[in-house]
Structure formats: structure tokens, C-alpha cells
Design a protein around this nucleic acid. Structure first.
Lengths: 328, 328
DNA sequence: ATGAAAGCGCTAACAG
DNA sequence: CTGTTAGCGCTTTCAT
């Protein structure tokens, strides 16, 4: 294996100088720089990040924690994180977690000195580890943070998209909108989609009735299933509704599947709107109307937050309604 | 930060002994072992994998290379790899690649001394790196290997599932089956699905006609799109067909979307069968018939191959037909 | 069965 | 601007 030493030798300089040119930091004369670069090329030298990691007590792995990995939404976020991460020599790694084994995973992440944890799950990292995380300077983002936690506030301005939906539905004469919360009551209480739903029901004169909100046990079970079951519940309730808004696209697909299987026509009988705008939503039939939340920008923003160690930033993400066949 | 030294001190032994109990290797007396374990618990010691990595010139990251990350199939494989990897303290990391930037990615993987590369893409790792990969003992699996490459032969016995499909289709009076190859002609020529399709067309007396095979440019473009476009092409050709078999479920969804959009009814007019059995296939409407390829077993097999450094193993994976609404 | 000590390849403080 | 040097935390011979 060719190491820095070999490069230094061939270039006739010290390893420190080689380091300087590689990291593009510190003073290096043009002459030395050139000699080193030539030696690197000549030897086909590939640096060993492992050693670097050790000296800096930190790896270049960013851990992304996800609960429902079957939800394509997360893949899309991951994709854009990977793209952005590559620019900064960051390895983005996906971890499927659930509340039960978060501790084991955290311990493994710490052991491996990941440089950051992006926790997309709906629970925060366990208390017992936050001091270690801090001590090791492992930058952590929780999408559902405890109040006191310093973190990126990636504020998703979904309100606008939701309001847009209400306005469109209203203009087409809809007034009886169901919300498939998918989450349980407690978690949903912090869901901005739910609060926006309630606010706008009032504002736009839609039916306001607790029965029109269906809770579930996402993300303990997959979004598709929760959607399906929620719709089944809804049909049993014999409620009078003309449209359905769902926590996310995956849930909406489960909902649609259930409705269609029961002979309910979309959009003739009921309109359905999802949220996230995953690619797949164009390819179901009828294609799913949804609220685009710019997954690509979200992913990039997270990685940038990691790189710049942003502690209290805000990324404005405009959510916009996308009308497709599932609404008339 | 508490290190091995602290543990050794508290336990009254040397760091070497601590290492021995941690790695469960070498001789350690019961007494010493107990003292060390107590010290570890007491200090809440979390070992530093970075140092270990350096001494062994190898990390515990397994890189999984994927071309079309929007295909949920890969997520399912990844999920089972993660589960299996955790048991062996392996970090499974997903990398989106395309032919153009494979070199950059490989270089980055080498720099980080990943312990293994599982290349699920349809091209092999570039020649120029295989000597380095070998020298560094980076275990590499290519799903589409060059002939000479030593590697896990994860033989997917999909033939049986495909034959089962033919038998079912025939018994229901179908004889005109289209195959959506999705891949281009060259890559498809190595696709066992295509050869199985041809073989069984003959065996079961289905129409044999080159026009009944539609090629595409997967995975350069997403499976959904390729499926959609292939179906569009098919419709334009004015061919007489009664059923369609697709490279994978994602492609099949694109196909179904196109057919349905053009007023073709499934399964009344045409039957559709996919391959992979991704979870989503149950949630489209009509639900998609498919060939189950045991993604979970596949993922586990790959990781086991990495752990055991299997050079020429075979994992029998029985593919089975799953009948759903998309066939009558 | 255990400890001492020499590295692993790189970084960073310090001296020049 | 450049080289020397002392680690980073752990593994692994080699003695004992």
C-alpha cells in the first residue's frame, strides 16, 4: 500500500507538507505543491481516511435514521442527501430504527463516531446518549425535537400548500374533507398538517367534526397498511364525506386501494390528496394529487446543516399543491 | 472520553487484556474477564471503532451500489441487509451510482476502506480499481459479474416462477404474452427472465415473435418511466396481445398506469405480471400479480457472503408466482 | 494467562 | 514556508 510517506519521499518533502497540499490548508510553496501532486499521480496514491478519522476522532459517515423504510419518500430524501454528501466527501448511511432498538443503534453509531445523525424518526434520541453525543461533538438533527434541543429548524411551510388545497376543493364545491392522520393522537398533536387542516376547515367553512380525523399507528406499521386500514374504518363509520387528505402519499395509496376495492370511485365519488409528491404518485391510477414538499431541497438542506453545523437555521420550503387525476 | 486505558486501570489489568475480553479471543482468566466487564459497565465505556479500523486497515462499512434508487425493490433488499448487518456490527450504506461516476465513487469507497462492496448495478466495477480492491482485500460482489470474477453466485432460480406463470396463463387460455424487457438489448441478453420467457413461449405454445419483446433504457431512466413508455410503444404497434410480463414490479406499475390511462382494462382486456413482489404491488389497483423473489433472503445472503467471504457459493432462491387482481 | 511496546497512517502543534 | 515529533485508541506480537 502506498502511503503519505512514499509520496513524501518521492516528492522530496516531509509528510506534513503532503498533508498540507492534500487538505489545501497551511502554507505550501507552489514548487512543493507541484512536486507533491506529481508524486501523488505517479504513485496512484489514495489516502487512507481511516487514519484521518482516528486523529480527528470522527468519521465522515452521516447516519440517517428512518422508521418506515418502505415509504419511498425517505428514499427520495436519501437520494438528494447522497448527492449533496458526495460533494463534501460525506457518506450517507441509512438506518432503519424503531423505538425499541434506538439505543442499540445509537451505541453503534457512537462506536463508529459518525459525524452526524439525522433522525427522521418521530422520536428523539434517548436522553442517556445526548451527553455523549455532545461530548463527541456528534451533530444531531431530530425532525421531531424536544423543545430544548438546539437543532436545525427546517421549517416546512406546508401550510401554504394545504391552504391551496382547501381553496381548490372549496371552489369545486367540496366541504366534507376527511383527514387521515395515520399517526396516533399524541404524535399527531404536533403534526402541522393536522393543525393546518383544523384551521382551514374553519376558515373555509368545511365540516368540523372530530370524526373526520382518523388516527392510526404509523409509523409502527407501514404507511400503506395504515392507510388501507384507516379507509376501511372510515367506510364502516358511514360518514358523509366527499374528499380525503392524507398524511403522506404512501398512506394515500393505501387509502385509494381500499376505496377502489370497495367500489368507491376516485374522483367521481371521492377525491384524494396526499402529501410529499413522491415519484410514484404519478404512476398510480388515478394519479395522486399531492402537496409537493421539495424532498430534494429538504435533503440538501439537512446535509448543508451538517456541513455548516447550523444550530438554529431555517430553510423556507414552499409546499405547493399538485393537481392530478385523483381530484376532479 | 473514556478509553481502553481507563478501563484497564480501573480493572487493574493491561489494555491488552481488555482487548482480549472485548474481542472474545485469546486466553483470559475468568477473574480478569469479570473485572474488566465490571469496569466497562461502571465507566459506561463505548469502544472507538475508528482506532480498530485503522489497525486493521478496514472499516465496518458495506457499500451497496444501486442505479435506480427509486425502485422500492432496492429498499427492501437494503432493509434486510441492514437487519443482517447489525448482527455483525456492519454498517450498510447505500450509494446511488451511474456508469458515469462509478470511478469517483469507487475511489471514495477505497479511501474509506469499506470492507465490502455489493454492486447491484448492471455494470461491473471498473477494471482500473480491481487490483486495488484486491490488494486491500475489499470483498466485492457484482450482481452482473464479468465471467472471470470470483464472486458469490447468488443464483436466483426465477425460472420456476416464470414457468409457473406460463402454466397458469396457458390454463386460462392466454397465448399472446408480451415481455417488457425494460433493459436494452445488450444487457437484456444476459437477463434470465428474457431467456426463460423465450424458452417457455416455445414450450407452452405461446406466440414467438421478436415484436413481443419491448426493450428500453433501464436503468438509465427510472423503472416507472421506462414501463410507461414501453407500454405506449406497445399500444402504438397495434399488436395482438392478451398479457404482459415485466422485468420488475416498478416497470409493471408504469405499464399499468399507461394502459389504464388509455382505457385498457386490467385484467378484463390484458393481464399484467411483474417481478420482485415489492410491498407496493399489493397496494396498487388492480393489485399486481408478480413473482416473489424473496428479497429478504437475498439481502441476508449477500451479507452472509460478506461475513463469510464466500467466493463461490450458491443460494437457492425459489421464485414463486403470486396471483393477484391483475390476472383474471 | 498477562503485560509491554511497537505500530496502523495521518494530523497538528511547535520550532525553525 | 517546511520538517520534526508526539500522539489518536486500539491490536498484536513477543516475552514472561
Amino acid at each position: 500500500m502506498v502511503t503519505r510517506k512514499d509520496v513524501a519521499q518521492l516528492a522530496g518533502v516531509s509528510t506534513a507538507t503532503v498533508s498540507r497540499v492534500m487538505s489545501k490548508s497551511g502554507y505550501v510553496s507552489e514548487a512543493a505543491k507541484e512536486k507533491v501532486e506529481r508524486a501523488i499521480r505517479h504513485l496512484n496514491y489514495i489516502p487512507n481516511n481511516l487514519a484521518k478519522n482516528l486523529t480527528q476522532n470522527k468519521s465522515n459517515v452521516v447516519a440517517v435514521l428512518v422508521e418506515d423504510v418502505t415509504n419511498p419518500y425517505y428514499l427520495q430524501i436519501l437520494e438528494s442527501m447522497s448527492d449533496e454528501g458526495r460533494k463534501h466527501n460525506l457518506i450517507i448511511s441509512l438506518f432503519a430504527v424503531n423505538k425499541g432498538d434506538i439505543d442499540i443503534i445509537l451505541e453503534s453509531l457512537i462506536k463508529n463516531r459518525v459525524c452526524a445523525i439525522i433522525n427522521l424518526a418521530l422520536f428523539s434520541c434517548s436522553e442517556r446518549y445526548i451527553s455523549i453525543l455532545n461530548e463527541l461533538d456528534i451533530y444531531t438533527i431530530n425532525v421531531r425535537p424536544r423543545d430544548q434541543e438546539a437543532c436545525l429548524k427546517l421549517y416546512l411551510n406546508q401550510d401554504r400548500g394545504i391552504e391551496e388545497m382547501f381553496s381548490v376543493l372549496k371552489s369545486k364545491g367540496r366541504r366534507k374533507l376527511v383527514y387521515i392522520a395515520a399517526l396516533n393522537k399524541e404524535i399527531a398533536s404536533e403534526d402541522i398538517r393536522l393543525s393546518a387542516y383544523r384551521k382551514n376547515c374553519q376558515k373555509y367553512g368545511f365540516i368540523q367534526d372530530p370524526q373526520y380525523v382518523i388516527f392510526g399507528d404509523y409509523p409502527e406499521r407501514r404507511a400503506f397498511e395504515v392507510g388501507y386500514d384507516s379507509a376501511e374504518l372510515l367506510l364502516k363509520q358511514n360518514l358523509d364525506f366527499d374528499s380525503i387528505f392524507c398524511l403522506n402519499d404512501s398512506t394515500a395509496m393505501g387509502v385509494m386501494k381500499c376505496l377502489l376495492s370497495h367500489g368507491v370511485r376516485i374522483p367521481q365519488d371521492v377525491w384524494v390528496v396526499g402529501c410529499d409528491n413522491i415519484i410514484l404518485s404519478q404512476y398510480v391510477h388515478p394519479s395522486l394529487s399531492t402537496i409537493d414538499v421539495q424532498t430534494e431541497r429538504q435533503g440538501k438542506a439537512y446535509i448543508r446543516a451538517v456541513v455548516e453545523k447550523i444550530v438554529d437555521g431555517t430553510e423556507e420550503i414552499d409546499a405547493k399543491l399538485i393537481c392530478r387525476e385523483s381530484i376532479g
